[in-house]
Design a protein around this nucleic acid. Sequence first.
DNA 1: GAAACTGTTCACAAATTTTACATAGGTATC
DNA 2: GATACCTATGTAAAATTTGTGAACAGTTTC
Lengths: 224, 224
Amino acid sequence: MDRLKVLVVDDESRMRKLVKDFLSRSNYEVIEAENGEQAVDIFFEQKDIALIILDVMMPKMDGWQACREIRQYSKVPIIMLTAKSDEKDELLGFELGVDEYISKPFSPKILVARVEAIIRRTMVKDEETLEIGGILVDKAAHQVKIDGVNVDLSVKEFELLSYFIKNKGVALSREKILNNVWNYDYFGDARTIDTHVKKLRSKMGEKGDYIKTIWGMGYKFEVE
Amino acid sequence: MDRLKVLVVDDESRMRKLVKDFLSRSNYEVIEAENGEQAVDIFFEQKDIALIILDVMMPKMDGWQACREIRQYSKVPIIMLTAKSDEKDELLGFELGVDEYISKPFSPKILVARVEAIIRRTMVKDEETLEIGGILVDKAAHQVKIDGVNVDLSVKEFELLSYFIKNKGVALSREKILNNVWNYDYFGDARTIDTHVKKLRSKMGEKGDYIKTIWGMGYKFEVE
DNA sequence: GAAACTGTTCACAAATTTTACATAGGTATC
DNA sequence: GATACCTATGTAAAATTTGTGAACAGTTTC
């Protein structure tokens, strides 16, 4: 896999360099920003930033505001650097959806450890690879394994299965499926889904039963 | 709105008191239990507990087991208090459907902040799952559980039950039911409802009695 | 250019749900 | 307790939805 990108935001270049050194050594790609405004801009330009380390005190736009703006559109993990461990700050942070606090001064090793822990935690949820009930969906490789055996799926089948698994346990109407797996302006017949479901089920063998029909409503993926 | 009820479960009364003090100040009504067994009993008696704070280590029935038993019947948010942040515990918790972890010792303020955050979060979803008297209607999954057991309902049955529960305690005329569960331009016989009620009652077993007939008027859903 | 593969649509059988109806059983009113 | 209504229930028809195989056009592969 490619190196993961971490956005480090601090107005002190010395601090950025310190963090960058340690993270680079752990094989992260570090991108720097020197204030909140720049951070927000970069974040939305890059689109594949895995984690943000955000200083609270900064000119132009402080860490809280930057966090607020990013949280409106993204669930990217955010680590806040606070000058001292202030309970009030921490409480504010919870509301804003901060994942972790580290108070200055900190040990770079601990910073790296926490970054790794968070990345590990979120990677699982990140649906780069989905796994459930012996079904492994590797989005990067565009490949599906069932009980360790490769199963060849077409693009549509792959996307449909991914969508099912991402929404496991949720009843999905055909309309909803069309809007998400097909394009929003798709013009065709909703029954097309049935055909793809049929193929998926047959290719998935006995695990095909995980795709359940909800009569009069749509489909649902559920392991059991 | 009434004050929301929080059930605090811990064998140390000192700990319960601490939590209670802070939550009361934030306008929650706190109910105490000193072990898992008591917690489960109280939870099912009260029926309108908004959140549970559950200690892991307790006599009689530990937090995990209590969580397991409650989860069979309810999706009430659960916060676990763990002695130390143990990753293994946390993974077990995820499977059981724990919403949040707080490791002892903790700051009471942070506890309150997390409680508020979870309440806020679940309030939004709250319209998607209805729960009453051991009947759990999960609109997202389009699924009904009675006493923890799945009950298969057809779409109409599902909608009818949802409508009943949403209007629990209210007498509903057949006309009103038709207008809400069926389309406004429905042309058929109002007696159709009787048939669906019949099926619902039979599928719901003894809880079918919650659907009461109001002679000459219609039906009413009421738990008792 | 033939063969193989994809994504779609269609038609029809199969499955399931919804509705109608007939009859039996209850309930209120006088 | 007789009467008029209203509701419960079983049966079966009607309507709707889904599963499936086949066909078709567009692409890619060899």
